[in-house]
Design a protein around this nucleic acid. Structure first.
Length: 272
DNA sequence: AGCGGAACCTGTCGGC
DNA sequence: TGCCGACAGGTTCCGC
């Protein structure tokens, strides 16, 4: 589910509600969400903690706690955070409850159980975060940086864009949409991208992500915002999931291929 | 360096 | 109706 725009949407909504709230209690219904950390330790560490802030790094959610420590979450395919009033019992996919001091509940739920929660003393000590590459909205993400980074690899563009160690936050949907916007084939070896094309790709990355954030992300089947509302960017997708439908620019049927065990969607005419 | 495959786990959908 | 395979927004690890 969640790529950068969906995580950004959730972070913005949590940021509006969570800072200042404190954790009265933690209930863990699915211990494997904790990446091997013993449940007792996780609960004891968080009880009494207060939220100071919520940020996004790549597709990770970073909860800054008043003690100076961090709770770091990754939603993988089907994870969600929701702020709800406390139900009598956990819903089927509820994994962890954080009971807050205003009577509300921060719920981590995850149908497929790929998502993770972790505690970190310092962010740089948490390897999954340390491995991440460039933030697309960082000032250091420039067309010339992109051109140089692309030149260093021959991997196909689609795969290149989804490599979190290069640019952090792009997944299968937005890699496809960005390549369509940039008129570049997902199959193109990254080192063969010219300077002009790299500049086009750079603009497309920011333009597509900004548009998707503006529409609160993409809900294909089960992405939900913090308040259970759906995103709206699915109505603006141009190639993702559109196999056989006419390209919005040239009417060529959108093609679907397999790359790195993932589906890629593109227009064979517009994207070269 | 880069690729294919498998693994983690659950649910849905289409075909027969 | 039922069974079976394919597929799903992600990441990591292993072998070639």
């Amino acid at each position: 589910m969640p790529e950068l725009p969906e995580v950004e949407t959730i972070v913005r909504e949590l940021k509006a509600a969570l800072p200042g709230r404190c954790v009265l209690g933690v209930r863990v219904f699915r211990p494997d969400a904790l990446g091997g950390v013993p449940v007792a330790h996780f609960r004891a560490s968080l009880r009494g903690e207060c939220f100071a802030g919520v940020e996004r790094r790549g597709k990770f959610l970073v909860f800054r706690l008043t003690s100076g420590r961090f709770l770091v979450g990754h939603l993988r395919m089907t994870g969600k955070f929701a702020l709800v009033s406390r139900p009598a019992r956990p819903a089927p996919h509820h994994r962890v409850w954080f009971e807050l001091d205003d009577g509300s509940l921060l719920v981590f739920q995850d149908l497929r159980c790929f998502g993770t929660l972790a505690l970190a003393e310092r962010l740089e000590d948490y390897p999954p975060l340390a491995r991440l590459g460039m933030e697309p909205f960082s000032r250091r993400f420039t067309a010339s940086w992109l051109a140089g980074a692309l030149a260093a690899s021959r991997t196909p563009l689609k795969h290149w864009l989804m490599d979190q160690g290069r640019i952090a936050g792009l997944g299968n949907i937005y890699a496809a949409e960005i390549l369509f916007a940039a008129h570049l084939s997902p199959l193109r070896p990254s080192a063969e991208v010219t300077g002009t094309e790299a500049a086009r790709l750079h603009r497309a990355v920011r333009r597509v992500l900004r548009a998707a954030i503006g529409k609160n992300g993409t809900t294909i089947s089960d992405f939900r915002r913090v308040d259970e509302k759906r995103g709206e960017f699915q109505d603006f997708l141009r190639v993702y999931g559109k196999t056989g439908e006419p390209c919005p620019v040239c009417r060529t049927p959108i093609a679907r291929i397999r790359q790195q065990q993932r589906s890629s969607f593109y227009c064979p005419t517009c994207q070269r």
